[in-house]
Design a protein around this nucleic acid. Structure first.
Lengths: 219, 219
DNA sequence: TTTTAGATTTAGATAGGTCTAAATATTTTA
DNA sequence: TAAAATATTTAGACCTATCTAAATCTAAAA
């Protein structure tokens, strides 16, 4: 199946929006995600439905077919492997690679991405901690434990970031938190849900917004 | 200046066709190179002339402006660096990389290609021996000495390939010739210009067509 | 130098992806 | 449950890049 870059982007967007949702994805949601107008989305939706990549009934929103899901996951695989390449080989920072990977993920080749994966020595996660789907589309989702829900006195390791916006990633750089950092929860403030934590023996406070954006594994 | 992939391909094609020619490049030549119709070329030519990337007068063919030349060389730089990456890092063969590089050369980024170049440790030539333009667009062309013009008894090193078609590259693989191979010219046949050469002590014959496709440096 | 062949350009059409404005459907709220 | 607000779809337009067919120009041959 040959798809245009645009079609691929729609599938990817629908996949991301549908994640952890049973209900269908609405036209407006897609248009917001892709920064297009709702009318453009309606047009494209029809096209993708004709190709059996999504389920669509007028006014009911859409969901991916198995075929559509497979393609979406392939694109995500490419995106994340390219991000690993950019960070680990070309020395980009983790907040600089998204846009570039958005382009690279659309390179068409039957062999490229598997060769890239081998060259990178089969990484399991991208620079933001998101899991890299394997060749067959299987994804090892880590359990979504947020730092905000870790109990006082417990230690945990940062394994992922929920909102990987550039500004958030740069904030993490500034306060010295990266993937693999071991944090200790010292205390929580009831009134604003901020928490006091320790990283490398250095204690500091973070807002609830921050602690809800960090996935951790409790030790 | 933001250019579409198509516009970039036109500039690249015009650059290659104009190489070592004083006269302008014709519409038909471009259409053949890009496998489009002449009428499509005329349309695009007007567009590129409006952007001051080519000189164009009706029925007179085109030539690149300095700006157009600069952009064409940048694309060639990207193409060749990606080819090096594919061969030296991802283990592609030299006959497999052209099509992929055609896609990768159009990735838009201010920093990517320089970082890639550093990662590859500043290669000077692509897998077919073609020189890689530097950041400022300077190209070190090697003198175009063909194997066919090397004198009997002389030794020479293969430094480039003129026609890098897949089939020719695979032929070279089969007979064991690669970039850097040292060849000795044993004899020449006057009637068909074929020549007998030696590679790693192994003597064999090659046709004139082959010997005119190999650039060499005489030792 | 006139005819003819070949190259080039123009005119009008098509396809993909987008948009605005208007029409229609659904959901919310009073 | 009817009115109002919001979401979605349709209709018609535009832009890019392409095509075919026809018109025009240039160069070669007679």
């Amino acid at each position: 199946m040959k798809l245009s870059q645009t079609e691929e982007n729609y599938l990817k967007a629908i996949y991301s929006l549908a994640y952890s949702k049973t209900n269908n994805v609405s036209t407006t949601l897609i248009s917001a995600a892709l920064k297009t107008k709702a009318s453009s989305v309606t047009d494209m939706i029809k096209k993708l439905a004709d190709k059996n990549l999504i389920h669509y009934k007028k006014y009911q929103g859409v969901s991916l077919t198995n075929m559509g899901k497979k393609i979406a996951v392939e694109i995500i695989r490419k995106h994340r492997l390219w991000e690993v390449f950019l960070v680990s080989k070309l020395n980009y920072n983790w907040d600089e690679v998204h846009e570039l990977a958005e382009q690279l993920e659309h390179i068409k080749s039957d062999t490229l991405i598997d060769k890239l994966e081998a060259f990178l020595e089969f990484p399991t996660n991208d620079p933001h901690g998101d899991p890299i789907p394997d060749k067959d589309g299987n994804i090892k989702h880590h359990k979504n434990i947020m730092l905000s829900s870790v109990e006082i006195e417990k230690y945990c390791v940062v394994i992922g970031i929920k909102d990987s916006s550039d500004s958030f990633l740069r904030y993490l750089d500034r306060i010295g938190i990266q993937l693999g950092s071991t944090l200790k929860v010292i205390s929580k403030e009831a009134f604003d849900n901020s928490m006091r934590i320790e990283n490398n023996q250095v204690p500091f406070s973070i807002s609830n917004q921050i602690s809800q954006n960090l996935f951790v594994k409790v030790l």
